[in-house]
Amino acid sequence: MNIFRFAGDMTHLISILVLLLKIYATKSCSGISLKTQELYALVFLTRYLDLFTDFISVYNTIMKLVFIASSLAVVCCMRMHRVVRRSYDKDLDTFRHYFLILASFVLALLVNEKFTFQEIFWAFSIYLEALAILPQLVLLQRSGNVDNLTGQYVFFLGAYRAFYILNWIYRYFTEQHFSRWIACVSGLVQTVLYADFFYYYFISWKNNAKMQLPA
């Protein structure tokens, strides 16, 4: 464990807490893409298949359980909760995310560390996570204005993978045989996809104005 990875995990945790706060405090999921939440639930379920077989550390196991439980809780809440579900922007959240799942799975079959069940699903989860934010970014683009908590949620979600890139660079120079090029390339793509969001987020922060995405 290094400071970059710990900072990344904490940033990721903060993004989830901000999302839960937004839904719980405002009893509304307006501006949140259910499709992105479903993709993230799939990412965690397919990435942590080794949850009960490979014990890494207490921290690792607890974080995996938190990520799986929180992503499933948000999906269930957005689908089932009678008050929250009414605020879901159903007609704005129309990204065809099944294509993202299909593309990630095909790529995982072609590009993986080893052609085994666990490695293919791990690569699938890495590729899918890089693309999972697209429905959310499209939804924000369409809805135009971004409420504070939603903006912070997306910001922290994008920032965590940037910390992981620093972690991979650090581990590359400090550990022999360390090679995570699948995660690293995918993490780079993932962070770049947030570039324009980060730009408009920074502008709104500098002008202390409400965040506006160009329609």
Binding site: R5, D9, H12, D50, D54, I56, N60, M63, K64, F67, W122, Y164, N167, E175, H177, F178, S179, R180, A183
Partner: peptide, 10 residues
Amino acid sequence: KASSKVKDEL
């Protein structure tokens, strides 16, 4: 060697 084999990251 073990560390790079086992997926020790989240």
